[in-house]
Computed example of a mutant assay.
Amino acid sequence: MITVEFVVTPGFPVMSLAALSVFEFANLSAPEPIYDVKILSEFGGPIATSSGVTLMTSPFSELPCDTLIIGGNTQVVPTSPRLAAFLIETGVASRRLAAICTGAFALADAGLLKGRQVTTHWAFTETFRARFPDLDLLEDRLFVIDGSVWTAAGNSAGIDLTLCMLENDLGFEMARAVGKTLVIDYQRTGGRPQSSVHQTFAPRSDRIQDVLLFVRSNLGKSLSVDDLARVAGLSPRQFSRAFGTETGTSPAKAVEGLRVEAARQMIEQSRHSIEMIAIETGFGDQERMRRAFRRAFGRSPQAMRKAKRA
């Protein structure tokens, strides 16, 4: 049986436990239980969640485990010496050591992320970089696997992480079956971004929504403010003001953001050359697209494709 120990800290969100549902339903789908899941805390006993629900936990154990996961919290909490010692002693000896959301801070405090690529929730990336400037943080990733260390962005990404663990243990078909049972799209790989530029725009009026739809359908064309203003039925000045009010950004930055996302998807999902992708998404040339990628992701399209293939 595969032993999984899940560490929680006071004030953790109930959502973080959703990652354990993958192991639960894998056990229900198999002829006999495959995973032995234990929920631990520093001293055991009842631990209150951020919503006030109390969960009974077991204290840290010296027994070895196959997979050790430290769950996230609603904020960055101090890593106690006892927790750090447990992570070092038990985590290093385990086959897999994982962290969800702010759990990455505990692994970093314990010195277990040196030389590793990691991720955490986008809301905590600036804090993480400030505290651990020497660590290789991949900001816009759902989850990252680097050797035996697994890190996930947020609590929902923890489900993607454990589905990937399940696939590694029992194969793709089992992972897909569990994902189907949980009504989860089992296509969210670790390389998927945490956020989508489509989600950042929330226009209130139909005319601005129509403009965004027009942009997405015509990325390969020259999209000037005058062109977009005509779609909206406004003067360029009225349009720029209305667009900024409703989306929080300028038309030019919105167009670049949509082009960057479309290009990223093509880089990850197609075999088109970087040059062709730059043309198809309206950048025109590779250098212009490279600068936009640097601004958006901190790395070039070539580096992103190389990482995806790896």
Score class of each variant (00 low, 15 high):
A98Q: 08
S94P: 01
F201T: 09
S300K: 09
Q75S: 14
T151K: 06
A202S: 08
L40N: 10
Q265H: 09
K180W: 10
V77K: 13
L142W: 00
L234V: 05
M165G: 00
E246N: 12
V215R: 03
F201E: 09
F105N: 11
H272W: 07
S51L: 12
M174A: 12
V76A: 08
V4G: 15
S250A: 11
N168G: 13
D206R: 14
N27G: 05
T67M: 06
F6A: 12
F214E: 07
G158T: 04
V4H: 08
E268M: 11
L213K: 13
Q286Y: 11
L161I: 07
L28W: 00
V7E: 10
Y186I: 01
L55E: 06
R309Q: 09
V183I: 15
F243V: 12
A108F: 10
F239G: 09
S41V: 06
P64W: 06
L20C: 05
T245F: 08
S41N: 07
V197Q: 04
S156E: 03
G158C: 02
S21T: 12
E62W: 00
A108C: 11
P193L: 02
F297M: 13
S217W: 02
Q209F: 02
S80Q: 05
F6Y: 15
A106K: 05
H272L: 15
L135Y: 03
F172E: 12
R271Y: 04
E173W: 00
Q286I: 14
S94L: 11
G282M: 02
V178M: 05
F124C: 07
W150N: 07
L219A: 07
I69K: 10
I274H: 14
A30L: 05
I159T: 07
P46K: 14
S156P: 01
A177I: 00
D36W: 02
I47K: 06
